[in-house]
Design a protein around this nucleic acid. Structure first.
Lengths: 237, 237
DNA sequence: TAAAGGAGAAATTTATAAATAATTGGGCTG
DNA sequence: CAGCCCAATTATTTATAAATTTCTCCTTTA
């Protein structure tokens, strides 16, 4: 296996295994929470979930327990599970943390840069560039393909940092922030020129300008947060 | 509540709640894995665990599912759970990551320094200094009190960094590295003067010398890893 | 003829479902 | 408004189903 090209199957590390029911429902629940189909704060009653997803309570509870340690669900002892709440404070904390940690990771990644990594990054950016942000031209409708290649681009950026635990943490931060994006995403479209930001980052990386690349990446995350932050006033009211 | 003095109840964030069985068994399993009473690689069969801990399989499986997302247990779909293996590679990766991330966190913490934080740190160090490393003077026997105050000292150091997600990640790294310490801890005693290292860190922090404090902290973690690393040859053979 | 390999059945173990117990919350009563 | 009872929901136990591993026995081959 080529160590320069990190495998990009994000959800499950075990590829070919037959997948237990608990794992399936875990993935579905996680997806529904991240897209806010299950909205923040909602109570996750076993009866409701059982008929909604057509599974027994045992695999359900196992899935909820996993989601609890990942902070997508909070478990109140003896009184059930809830979708984790959102707040402006958490948005800021997550963004700040992501800027710190991915800044670090990008720095390391660039120090370990190889030719095949730069090529992989170029390809990832090309795919991102070519994929439309919205499914419709006028009104916004989130394109799942774009989300996939967008995530792949960012994952490639830091993929060479040399620390799996750190990559896992970054992935979790990305997931937790994704939910905030989904809450306000329609409004900012298509005002912001996010494509240019990605291009600038790519350029700085290929030019081996570490400080500049890190700066641009952090700016990119901070801008995203700023847009969401102002939207959140209305959404939380 | 005083924001300068971070609460130090590490295991469970919900203090007064009646504690479900699944949570209890989760804590016990985690403790037994970290102390290597449940040794790395061991298969965690439900029958064995049920009679060992006197609980039904449902809370057991819920606990195992939580531990899986925290990487203390690996779940092989349809073929049970195993205690996560150890390896020299992981030891190095975890140590490197901890140096990076806690370096970052300490830097931030020191930038936010307040008087009451410095006082809390002083107290934490005093407690650490006064607690004996071993229960017996000649042969080594791990003193759980020391582990507690040691962890509290390090938690206080980074406690003001302003990011709960980051603190959670640091805690997880500490847990995962703790297990490696436990595997080789007896041998290094009492050769290394670890007390001096803590004092030096404290001194640098109080002197507001950020670069020096970060350097000493990273050195501290790296030295610990080095000792374990050489021991691990014998232990994994 | 002995060793190796492979189907197939039995036994073990895991995963899920169904049933029971325990806890909480809300309304009623004194 | 304190306290008790009832309904609703969660947590745990017990039972069942499904999968995997082990073992046996038969066939094949050197």
């Amino acid at each position: 296996m080529n160590p320069d090209l990190p495998s990009q199957n994000l959800p499950s590390q075990k590829v070919d295994q037959p997948a237990t029911l608990a794992t399936t429902i875990y993935a579905r629940l996680k997806a529904d929470i991240l897209t806010t189909r299950l909205e923040p704060g909602r109570k996750l009653q076993s009866r409701f979930l059982m008929e909604q997803y057509n599974v027994g309570q045992t695999p359900l509870r196992e899935a909820l327990n996993r989601l609890t340690t990942e902070e997508f669900v909070v478990g109140m002892e003896q009184r059930g599970f809830y979708v984790k709440e959102v707040s402006k404070e958490e948005l800021q904390e997550l963004t700040k943390t992501r800027c710190w940690v991915e800044g670090l990771a990008l720095r390391e990644s660039m120090q370990n840069a190889t030719q095949s990594w730069e090529e992989a990054l170029l390809v990832a950016h090309h795919r991102l560039d070519r994929t439309p942000r919205s499914l419709k031209p006028d009104t916004f409708e989130d394109n799942p393909d774009w989300e996939k290649v967008h995530r792949a681009f960012h994952a490639t950026l830091i993929g060479l940092c040399g620390s799996r635990p750190l990559l896992g943490f970054c992935e979790q931060l990305a997931d937790r922030l994704y939910r905030y994006r989904m809450m306000s995403i329609a409004k900012a479209y298509p005002a912001r020129k996010v494509g240019a930001e990605h291009s600038d980052i790519l350029q700085a990386v290929l030019a081996k300008d570490i400080d500049q690349a890190v700066r641009l990446l952090q700016q990119h995350y901070q801008r995203t947060a700023d847009v969401i932050y102002s939207d959140l006033d209305g959404l939380l009211a």
